[in-house]
Design a protein around this nucleic acid. Structure first.
Lengths: 217, 217
DNA sequence: ATGATTTTGTACCAATCGGTAGTTAAATAG
DNA sequence: CTATTTAACTACCGATTGGTACAAAATCAT
């Protein structure tokens, strides 16, 4: 009885496992293709990106895209996951700064760097990819809202922790403070898309952090 | 020689002038129709709005829309003009507050009210209607960027004035302060679209205004 | 070799996109 | 009444939308 063969057949073979598959081999690198799809969705948004444009950008014909990634919605979700795990990883890093103030400062300043980085499209994909959209895209719109809320929760939980650790006054409303920082971040994203420079964003952040509540605690 | 007849033929007869026009009369109120178009563009954005949806919302068939307002782009611009002259008039009002701080406070608090008003779509149309879009809409995208920049300039000019009037320290960077207030506003717009309540936005504003530079001047 | 399996690439699908031609309907002018 | 003017409305346009059927090509197993 063969009980070893099929076990990893269900998984999409990762780029690093040179498992000899049966049929004709893929003529492109899945990860590279997904990265290119991410770049397009990032700069044009969900509805602003057409399959035709994706075909051009990935250099793959349409049926291969559908066979590999599923439909446009599925491809967007996979690109979004890559975005969250890759370029946006700086957010998680910021959470482990020693104090709440440093968390906020690191989060915002690395955002300023990230949002205006010339190697990327301007602005944050989670903020801009589907702020407004037609009725057919409300699912994607809602998922992005959930992701924003999720990051906001990350901040508020970190601030709650800071209150127990003593580097943030116990009288501070961690939820409101998190919403404040998230609001700044989202505003910075709009500013970056509108052409603001890193230095300009840094000046905004400097003002934003002057209202940090520790000075009143 | 008839030199009196044609003079006001070029103007679109305003709703208040019951000038007997020659042919079949309009079966709808132009201003009402434009208001409905505004509501759709406001909630769905430029690309997210289809002509079919506009036909439904206005209750007018497509050729009449084109005859009255021009194409989709022209209709959007007219709806945007109505938006700027109507719902957004509160911004100009805020500028005439007596001090720079009161200008910022009034601007932001009335924004919080406006952005979460249940009678309107959530969020600001100038911020959200075309943050990302396909290549065919980059003109509209740029026009909205220009409008945002325009409002930011209004703020910075008002703050410069305040410096000469003495209610804002002459050492303050008015341009940076204006960009800070604009960034907050844009962040609030994203928050409102994501479901934040007026009270939540007010709490954010309270934090944002704690960094007001007068206390250091 | 042959057959099985998987991907590629052309060519296509119905539906929707923004936009319009051309006819009918409703008003005024004479 | 008839002629003229203007708007309404049906029906349509080519282009593009997201999505697929199907056959040729490339690999593996035997």
């Amino acid at each position: 009885m063969s009980d070893v063969i099929d076990t990893e057949k269900l998984e999409q073979q990762s780029a690093k496992s040179p498992v000899k598959s049966r049929g004709r081999p893929l003529a492109f690198n899945q990860d590279e293709a997904l990265e290119r799809a991410l770049q397009v969705f990032w700069s044009r948004g969900y509805e602003g990106t057409s399959m035709a444009e994706l075909v051009d950008a990935l250099g793959i014909n349409k049926p291969s895209i559908y066979a590999t990634f599923g439909n446009k919605e599925a491809l967007f979700r996979k690109a979004l996951a890559k975005y969250l795990a890759g370029p946006v990883a700086y957010v998680a890093k910021a959470m482990s700064e020693p104090t709440a103030y440093q968390v906020a400062e690191k989060f915002l300043t690395s955002s300023a760097e990230f949002l205006t980085n010339l190697d990327n499209p301007r602005g944050c994909m989670v903020v801009q990819a589907a702020l407004t959209c037609g009725q057919s895209s409300t699912m994607i719109q809602q998922e992005l809202i959930d992701h924003r809320k999720n990051y906001e929760n990350l901040l508020s939980q970190r601030f709650e922790l800071a209150k127990t650790q003593g580097d943030l006054s116990s009288q501070v409303d961690a939820v409101a403070l998190a919403k404040y920082i998230a609001t700044i971040h989202q505003g910075l994203s709009v500013q970056a898309t509108s052409g603001a420079s890193k230095d300009e964003l840094m000046a905004v952040i400097k003002l934003a952090l002057q209202s940090w509540p520790t000075k009143f605690s």
